[in-house]
Design a protein around this nucleic acid. Sequence first.
DNA 1: TGAAATGTTGGGGCG
DNA 2: ACGCCCCAACATTTC
Length: 480
Amino acid sequence: MNQPLLFWFRKDLRLTDNTALKAAAQTGRPIICTYILDEDNDLAWPLGKASRWWLQESLKSLGLSLQQYELQLVLRRGDSVEQLSQLIKETGASSLYFSAQYEPSSLTLEQKVNLALKDQIEVKRFKGYLLYEPNENTTAEGKPYKVFTPFYKACLKKPPSTALPAPEQISAYPEYLASDDLLDWDLALDTPTWAQEYPPIWKPGEDGADWSLQAFIRQGVGKYPELRNRPDIFGTSRLSPHLHFGEISPRQIWNAINQLNNTDNEGVASYQRELIWREFSYNLLINWPDFPEQPFRSEFKAFPWHDDDSALHRWQQGQTGYPIVDAGMRELLHTGWMHNRVRMIVASFLIKDLLIPWQQGEKWFWQHLLDANLASNSASWQWVAGCGADAAPYFRVFNPTLQGEKFDPNGDYVRQWVPELDQLSKAHIHTPWEAPAEELKLAGINLNETYPSPIVNHKEARLRALAAFEVIKHKSQPAA
DNA sequence: TGAAATGTTGGGGCG
DNA sequence: ACGCCCCAACATTTC
């Protein structure tokens, strides 16, 4: 029983705490590592442009890490079942090991793979992408949770187990196998302006993930509850893209911060709560597979949206005339990331001030976020829109001026991303349209020329949003 | 993990 | 000394 074992990398692009890989290594059998680019598997949500760049870099990094074990990362492209079958044929592998994924299309694919191969070889699926398996936490009636807090409490009763070290050794399959050239996949082709700006900011791969985690810990997790709302300060972990691609596991993060000093306790609990939000989002996606497309609260299907391509375009490009909104949208364009507080502000603006369907924002984020994740992205957009599970009430309308003054008090974040406002004083950095003509002149700002005046009047827009909500308010109850 | 409208309280100016 | 008004400052409610 020393037949080769095929290891199928997916969103588990790491060696440490990779349960599936550890199990594969422990068999002592020769391992073939593969990654398959299967672009037709999810036609509804193909990899976004930013994600494609990250994937390319992460695969580069993984390939290098595997070289330490003298393992080849075999890159293949096409239908997953076909490519796996082909590799089995080429190598005589008698087992297939992989980490489970939880997007609806991934679950379907796993079933297809299992069905196609299980009579021929051993097919083993391992946990690791989530802290808890779907449906591991249910209400007393055995139904999926629709409210975060009880879900969170149920999770806390079962703390995650400790993380696994990377395998000490892995036996490599001795022969060189045909492999695509990573650059031929053209994963970074659609990233004209962005890709050049990413590298100094981001380091995709397992080492980069660990570096981000250590930086977050060094900076003091105790400060997280306060600083996480400040886009002008480096106060969040920036682990999201790493976590999305499985360069680090949620269990590694959970345990690494769990061992910190008492002074960090509050921050640790606060960050772990965010990890549980990720679990909650997957809980929603798995149990309601149309969550990315359809409002969870069905009465929102009748919401009187205003489709407005011109306004959508101005929002996308960061030209709304509200500095905090524009700063966020431009940070996204330049870095593939946006601070979470600002994500809420720009989302509220699109949905409530412009009355544009949340799905439009969701799609833009999907293309431009390096951490684009189907579960988190859709759950977050529905949360802001007020149509999700346990969502913010619709009438919670963010005032972009007040949010800016509260969370970017000196305007540093705005100045970084909206440089044309750089010379404006702290008093008017979030309200350029109210600045005295003299100050605007000195700052070199010509409203509507160098920077737009507000696309809507927030006060009026807020009332319009509340009126629109009245239309559906009494329609029906949340989805079953 | 809101904001605005509305309500209440209490200090100070002033007749 | 007292009542009255004004209006911050804070609290509650409403959307």
